[in-house]
Simulated scan of single mutants.
Amino acid sequence: MTFAILGDTHFDFHLNANAPVTESLFDMRFKHFLEASPADVLLLPGDIGHYNTQNLECLKHLRRYYHHIVVTFGNHDYYLPGESIVSRYKELGGSAGASRARVEEMKAMIDAEEGIDYVDGTVIDINGIRIGGASGWYDGSLYISDGEKTHADVQSIWRWKMNDANMIHPTGTNGAKFDDLFHEQKYRLDAVYQQCDIMMTHVSPLSEWEQFKVMYNYQPALDQIDHKYSANHEALKEYRAFYCFDGKEYLENGSMKHWVFGHTHQRFHRTYTRQDGKTVDIHCNSIGQLVGKNTFGLKVIEL
């Protein structure tokens, strides 16, 4: 069975959120690379888009290309863009929180569709291949584990520099912490990591600065051309702390053969070798914005 990886679709980046998504309009935007790499199942590891109704319309159009679609939810799937949307989901969410209400609404919409599923502390079995996962979330470990910064330091960076602090409700101004959703998600990962062949999270399980050097094509030689290059690139490390979590315990002890993530808007592959000699292939294939990505293609794996 073949599985195509398409992360960070952000459908409202490409389509008018206030207009119906017709078949012809959807195909004009996406058909060229969907047909170029056919597969049985589509894996979409979060950041579907900012608007649930449009998200569902687009997932139904994707269903024309695949026997099955499995998604999880990313930070942008929690975003509430605009006061009217915040107010609406506050009424729906109550004490659980407005952003969580939006995700629960999206789950209910998906539950009503044939051939589209989500993983959120659950496992989906498709012809004997088990896909498990959850959103996963960043935990600040890229900084905290080496003693470089404290939890309070990372909280301050998140509060002042990350859209998540303002777009996910309750927001950072109301006492929310950058790792609240990590702690909320962890027990969901605990429930599935030994039960799946493919693990899917929105956030990378590799809490390593070396990963981002590879992913973002870090080139020390450019220091010789532009002395500001290194400083500017290292500044990205502050943001990358919110692009990963320490997933080593899951990689070392899980049943997965593949781990699929998104969030970075990059293409990435690494074969992770465990202490027992077994390997896990870790993949990211995110579209983000189509601008400058005329050669974008799907990543297809086979099990």
Rank of each mutant, 00 (worst) to 15 (best):
P81W: 07
P81L: 11
P81T: 09
G82K: 03
G82I: 04
S84A: 15
V86W: 00
V86C: 02
S87H: 13
S87F: 10
S87Q: 15
Y89P: 02
E91K: 15
L92F: 14
G94L: 07
S95Y: 11
S99T: 06
R100G: 00
A101S: 06
R102P: 01
R102C: 09
V103H: 04
V103F: 08
E104F: 07
E105G: 08
M106E: 08
A108R: 15
A108L: 15
M109G: 05
M109S: 09
D111E: 15
A112W: 05
E113D: 10
E113L: 09
D120K: 05
D120E: 11
I126T: 06
N127S: 15
G128V: 11
G128W: 09
I129A: 10
I129E: 05
I131S: 06
G132D: 03
A134R: 00
S135T: 10
G136L: 04
G136W: 01
G136D: 01
W137F: 14
G140M: 00
S141E: 10
Y143G: 07
I144L: 11
D146P: 02
D146C: 12
G147T: 12
H151K: 11
H151I: 09
D153F: 02
V154F: 01
V154A: 02
S156F: 05
S156A: 15
I157K: 07
I157F: 13
R159L: 14
K161S: 14
K161G: 10
N163L: 14
N166Q: 13
N166K: 14
N166S: 14
I168W: 01
T171C: 02
T171V: 04
G175C: 03
D179S: 04
D180K: 00
L181P: 00
F182D: 00
H183N: 11
E184I: 14
E184Y: 13
Q185C: 11
K186F: 12
L189T: 07
Y193V: 13
Y193F: 15
Q194H: 09
Q194W: 05
Q195I: 09
D197G: 12
M200H: 02
V203I: 15
P205F: 10
P205V: 12
